[in-house]
Write a protein that binds this DNA or RNA. Structure first.
Length: 861
RNA sequence: GCCGGAGUGGCGGAAUUGGCAGACGCAAGGGACUUAAAAUCCCUCGGAACCUCGUUCUGUACGAGUUCGAGUCUCGUCUCCGGCACCA
C-alpha cells in the first residue's frame, strides 16, 4: 500500500476492474427482490455539468447501497438525444445532427465513467436511434386507433426563434422554456395527444404518489386544475343562437348584468357588424395589462330571470378555457366589477355575507369592490335565503330539469400538442392522400426513418418538407401519389416511456411483459424539480394510455421521486469585462484588467453568468470521489447546494485522513481473526476487569455500532447523505485518537475500519475498493453485504441525565441507562446544586422523561 | 393576487416523536513540528456581563399563545424563494 492517496491511479484502476468484471451488469434473476433506481437521462449537449454530477452521484449512492443491502438493482443510463441544439449545430457548423449527437454521447459517456458511476451500459437507450423511435411511432399509431391522437387546427404557442410550436407546459412566463424568446400565437394544423381524457384519473391518482414530494404533487394538481360548476345556455335575443357559458358560481346567476365572449368565439363574427372593432380586440387578446371590450349591440336573455343583458366582446375572455364565453356578475367578481365600472354597467348584489343575513340589499353605489365570498342568496327568486353551497346544487338541479344547462366539470389541462416543425425528432408516421385522407403508416413499414441528406438552412419550415425524397410516397391504401407528414414529434414523447425500454435488453422486445412486470415501476426516480409538470405529467399520461393498450400492467410509473436542488454559486462581475469565470478573478481582482470584481448573489450555475465549475477540472484536481463526496455532504439532496471551493478541499482532506489511518494501521489486519462480538466485550466489561485499554476498545466498538445504525437510518430515511457522511467523519475522528495496545484493541480497530470502508464505499467507491483491498479483502467491496449493528452493543450503559428546574438547565448527572423514573427523580433532588436552587421553595411537580431529563417545577419562581 | 416552502453562529448545515440548540464541515484565532513555508497534528470558537477560574444572563426572522418544557405546535406580522396567474 502506498503512503500517499493517489486518486488518479486508483480511480482508473477500479473503473477498469468494475467494467472488466462486469460488476455493473444487471442480474436477470427474477427470484430476487428488485430495486429500480433511475436518474433522469441527460440531453447529450457534449459536456456534463454540476447539476448532472449531483443528480448522478445521488443515484449512484442509492444504487450501490441497495445492492449491498441485497437487492437486485437495475441502474441504467441513456440519452435524450433528439432536440434542437443538434439541429442548431447543423445550421451553424454544417455538422449533421446525428454525427454531432453521437460524438457528444461518446464524450459524455467517458465523463460519466470517470465519475465512477455504476451504470449497466448494456441497456443504454439512445432516443434518436431508429430502433428506439420506431416505438414512438408504434405508440402513436396505437393512440391514433384509440382516438387518443388526433389532428386539429388551433391557435398554438409559437416560438419565433426555435421556429416551432410549444406545448402549454413549455411556455414559461410567456416565454419559450428553452430559449426565452417571447412566444406568439399562431394558427396551425397540429397533432395532439388527448391527455385531457385522463385528466380525472391523473388527478385522482395523485393520491397514489405517496413517495413524491408534496409540492410536486400539488403542482400537478394545480396544472390539471379541476373546477366544478355548471354550463348554462343564454339565448341571444332575436336570433336562433345560444351562448353557452361555464361558471363555478351558479349561485350568482341572478346577479348577471352582462355577458362577455372571447374575440375568437364562433358567434363573435355573427354578432358584430363592425369587423374593425373586432379585429382591434383580437389584437389585444391575451394581453394582461389592459382589459378592454365593446358592446356588440346584441342582447342575451338570462334563462333564470328572463331579463335581457348586453353582450360584450372582451379581450380577457379565453377561448381555450370553459366555453369561450362568460356570464358577468360584477357584484361578486372583482374583474367583472372593474369592467362594469369602466363601461357603466349595473351592479346587482345577490349574495350577502352570512352574518348580515336577513339584512337589506346593499345599494350598488355602496359597493367598493366585489363580494367574492360565499354567503346567503338575496334577489334570487325562489332561491333567496339559501346558502351559496345549497344554492349551487339547487340551481344546478333546476337548470338541468328545465333543460337550460347542466352541472359540469372543467379542467385547465389542455391536450398535448406534439407536432414540431423540426428535423431532429421522431417522424410522425402518417401519410396524406388526396383520395384517402389521413392514412397511418402500416406497422410493417415502421420505422419511418429520418432521411440523412437534408439541407439545414435555418430558414423557416421543417427541413423534412424540403426533402422531395422523404415527402413523396405512395398511399398505402390506394397506391396513388401521396405525401408524408413532415412534422416530427415533441421530444417529450421520447422521454415518456424510456424507463420502460431499460427493462429489457437491447436485443429483446421492448414490450416484453415479463421484464416489464418484474422491473417496473421505478422504485426511485431522481431528477430536477423543473420537470414537476412537464416530463412527469407526460410520463404519467403515457403510462396510463399504454396500460389501456395493454402494454403496461400498472397505473403509475414512479413510486418514489427525489427532486434534487440546484447547484448554485456566487456570480462575479467585472465593470469592464462583465461576467467572469471563477478562475478569471484572483484576490478580488479581474485577471484581465485588474479592476476590483463585484461579488453578486448566489445563483444557479449557468453558462450565461459564468458561475460554473467544470467537473472534469475538478476530477483532475481532486478526483471523482472527492467531487462526489462534497456534492453529497454540502446539503441534503432536495435542497439547493451552494458551491464552495473550500468545502471541496474539506471533503478531500477527509478522504486523505481515511487513507492515512488505514495506512497507519494496515498491519492490524493480522488481528482479523479475532472477532469482536457482544459476548466478548460484555465479559470484559465485568467489574474488576475493566482495564483502561479494554474500556477504550469498548467505546470504539460501541461508536462503530452507533455509526452503522445512524448511517443506515439516515440513508433509509429520506436519503440524508449529509448527516450520514457527518457520522462517518465522527467515527474517523474517534479512530484517529485511538491507539491500539492489546490484540483486542487491534481487533476493535479493525472492525471499526472495515465498517467505515463499507459505509463509505457507496459515496466514494474508488477509495472504498482500494482500501478494502489494502486491508486484505479479496473480492469487491460491493459484493460484500452492508454492515449490521448490534443493538446491545450500540447502547450506552450510562446516560447523561439533564436536570432542569422550572425548565432551565441546572445540572447534568451521569446515570446508568434504564434507571427507573422514581430513582431518577430521587437522584435529581439529591444533587447538591439542585438542592441549593430549590431550597425554600415548594416543589409542585417533577416531570421525568425516561433516560433523558428531569424537570423540577417549583412555586414562586 | 392565489397556492406552496423556507428563515438557526462569520458561512454550509445538524437537532428523527415537544425534552441539553449549534453535530459534522468550512472560515477565523492560538499552539506544536519546520531554517522557513505548505501539509499535518493539538486547542479555542453564538452573544453579553461579571468576583479572569468559572458562573450567570441571553439567543433559532418578529410579536403573542399553548405547555412543566417550544427551533419544533397554534395565531398574527415581516422577509426571501418556488409554482400558478385574466381559469369565469
Amino acid at each position: 500500500m502506498k503512503e500517499k492517496y493517489d486518486f488518479h491511479e486508483i480511480e482508473a484502476k477500479w473503473q477498469e476492474y468494475w467494467s472488466g468484471k462486469g460488476l455493473n451488469k444487471t442480474d436477470t434473476d427474477a427470484s430476487r427482490e428488485k430495486f429500480y433506481c433511475l436518474e433522469m437521462f441527460p440531453y447529450p449537449s457534449g459536456k456534463i455539468h454540476m447539476g448532472h454530477v449531483r443528480n448522478y452521484a445521488i443515484g449512484d449512492v442509492i444504487a450501490r447501497y441497495k445492492k449491498m443491502r441485497g437487492f437486485n438493482v437495475l441502474h441504467p443510463m441513456g440519452w435524450d438525444a433528439f432536440g434542437m441544439p443538434a439541429e442548431n449545430a447543423a445550421i451553424k457548423h454544417g455538422l449533421h445532427p446525428a454525427k454531432w449527437t453521437y460524438e457528444n454521447i461518446e464524450s459524455m459517456k467517458k465523463q460519466l465513467d470517470r465519475m465512477g458511476l455504476n451504470y449497466d451500459w448494456d441497456r443504454e437507450v439512445t432516443t434518436c436511434s431508429p430502433e428506439y423511435y420506431k416505438w414512438n411511432q408504434w405508440f402513436f399509431l396505437r393512440l391514433l386507433e384509440k382516438g387518443l391522437a388526433y389532428r386539429k387546427s388551433s391557435f398554438v404557442n409559437w416560438c419565433p426563434s426555435c421556429a416551432t410550436v410549444l406545448a402549454n407546459e413549455q411556455v414559461i412566463d410567456g416565454k419559450c422554456w428553452r430559449c426565452d424568446s417571447l412566444v406568439i400565437q399562431k394558427e396551425l394544423e397540429q397533432w395532439f395527444f388527448r391527455i385531457t381524457r385522463y385528466a380525472e384519473e391523473l388527478l385522482r391518482d395523485c393520491d397514489k404518489l405517496t413517495g413524491w414530494p408534496e409540492r410536486v404533487v400539488l403542482m400537478q394538481k394545480h396544472w390539471i386544475g379541476k373546477s366544478e360548476g355548471a354550463e348554462v345556455d343564454f339565448p341571444v335575443q332575436g336570433m336562433d343562437e345560444k351562448i353557452k357559458i361555464f361558471t363555478t358560481r351558479p349561485d350568482t346567476l341572478f346577479g348577471v348584468t352582462f355577458m362577455c365572449i372571447a374575440p375568437g368565439h364562433p358567434l363573435a363574427e355573427k354578432l358584430v357588424r363592425d369587423k374593425d372593432k373586432l379585429n382591434a380586440i383580437k389584437e389585444k387578446y391575451g394581453k394582461i395589462e389592459e382589459k378592454v371590450g365593446f358592446f356588440t349591440g346584441q342582447y342575451a336573455v338570462n334563462p333564470l330571470t328572463d331579463r335581457k343583458v348586453p353582450i360584450y366582446v372582451a379581450n380577457f375572455v379565453l377561448m381555450e378555457y370553459g366555453t369561450g364565453a362568460i356570464m358577468s356578475v360584477p357584484a361578486h367578481d372583482q374583474r367583472d366589477f372593474e369592467f362594469a365600472g369602466e363601461y357603466d354597467l349595473p351592479v346587482v348584489p345577490v349574495i350577502v355575507p352570512e352574518k348580515s343575513a336577513g339584512g337589506k340589499d346593499l345599494p350598488a353605489s355602496e359597493f367598493k369592490q366585489a363580494y367574492e365570498d360565499e354567503g346567503i342568496l338575496v334577489n334570487s327568486g325562489n332561491f333567496s335565503g339559501l346558502k351559496s353551497s345549497q344554492a349551487k346544487t339547487e340551481i344546478g338541479k333546476y337548470i338541468e330539469e328545465k333543460g337550460l344547462g347542466k352541472r359540469t366539470i372543467n379542467y385547465k389541462l389542455r391536450d398535448w400538442g406534439i407536432s414540431r416543425q423540426r428535423y431532429w425528432g421522431t417522424p410522425i408516421p402518417v401519410i396524406y392522400c388526396d383520395k384517402c385522407g389521413i392514412v397511418p403508416v402500416p406497422e410493417k413499414d415502421l420505422p419511418v426513418i429520418l432521411p440523412e441528406d437534408v439541407k439545414f438552412t435555418g430558414k423557416g419550415g421543417s427541413p423534412l418538407a424540403e426533402s422531395e425524397e422523404f415527402r413523396k410516397v405512395k398511399c398505402p391504401k390506394c397506391s396513388g401519389e401521396a405525401r408524408r407528414e413532415t412534422d416530427t414529434m415533441d421530444t417529450f414523447v421520447d422521454s415518456s416511456w424510456y424507463f420502460v425500454r431499460y427493462c429489457s435488453k437491447r436485443d429483446e422486445n421492448p414490450l416484453d411483459k415479463r421484464n416489464i412486470s418484474y422491473w417496473m415501476p421505478v422504485d426511485q426516480y431522481i431528477g430536477g424539480i423543473e420537470h414537476a409538470v412537464l416530463h412527469l405529467l407526460y410520463s404519467r399520461f403515457f403510462t396510463k394510455a399504454l396500460r389501456d393498450l395493454e402494454v403496461l400492467p400498472f397505473d403509475e410509473p414512479f413510486l418514489n421521486l427525489l427532486t434534487q436542488g440546484m447547484v448554485c454559486k456566487e456570480t462575479l462581475r467585472c465593470p469592464e469585462h462583465d461576467w467572469l469565470f471563477p478562475e478569471e478573478a484572483q484576490d478580488g481582482k479581474c485577471v484581465l484588467c485588474g479592476r476590483p470584481v463585484d461579488r453578486g448573489r448566489v445563483e444557479k450555475m449557468s453558462k450565461s453568468r459564468k458561475n460554473v465549475i467544470d467537473p472534469d477540472a475538478l476530477i483532475r484536481r481532486y478526483g471523482a470521489d472527492t467531487m462526489r463526496l462534497f456534492s453529497l455532504f454540502a446539503a441534503p439532496p432536495e435542497r439547493d447546494l451552494e458551491w464552495s471551493d473550500k468545502g471541496v478541499e474539506g471533503a478531500h482532506r477527509f478522504l486523505n485522513r481515511v487513507w492515512g489511518i488505514v495506512y497507519k494501521n494496515s498491519d492490524s489486519k493480522n488481528s482479523n481473526e479475532l472477532p469482536v462480538t457482544s459476548d466478548k466485550l460484555k465479559t470484559k466489561e465485568k467489574p474488576g476487569d475493566s482495564s483502561l485499554v479494554i474500556r477504550h476498545s469498548l467505546l470504539l466498538v460501541r461508536k462503530t455500532h452507533q455509526t452503522i445504525k445512524k448511517v443506515t437510518g439516515d440513508i433509509d430515511r429520506e436519503y440524508h447523505f449529509n448527516t450520514a457522511i457527518a457520522a462517518l467523519m465522527e467515527l474517523i475522528n474517534e479512530i484517529s485518537s485511538f491507539t491500539p495496545e492489546a490484540d483486542e484493541d487491534r481487533a476493535s480497530l479493525f472492525f471499526a475500519l472495515k465498517s467505515i470502508l463499507l459505509m463509505l464505499a457507496p459515496f466514494a467507491p474508488h477509495i472504498g475498493e482500494e482500501l478494502w483491498e489494502a486491508i486484505g479483502e479479496k473480492s469487491s467491496i460491493f459484493e460484500s453485504p452492508w454492515p449490521v449493528w448490534d443493538e446491545a452493543l450500540a447502547k450506552e450503559e450510562e446516560v447523561e441525565l439533564v436536570i432542569q428546574v422550572n425548565g432551565k438547565l441546572r445540572a447534568k448527572l451521569l446515570v446508568p441507562a434504564g434507571l427507573s423514573d422514581e430513582e431518577a427523580r430521587q437522584r435529581s433532588l439529591e444533587d447538591a446544586k439542585v438542592k441549593e436552587i430549590i431550597s425554600g421553595k415548594e416543589i409542585n411537580k417533577v416531570v421525568v422523561v425516561k433516560g433523558k431529563l428531569v424537570n423540577i417545577v417549583t412555586s414562586n419562581k
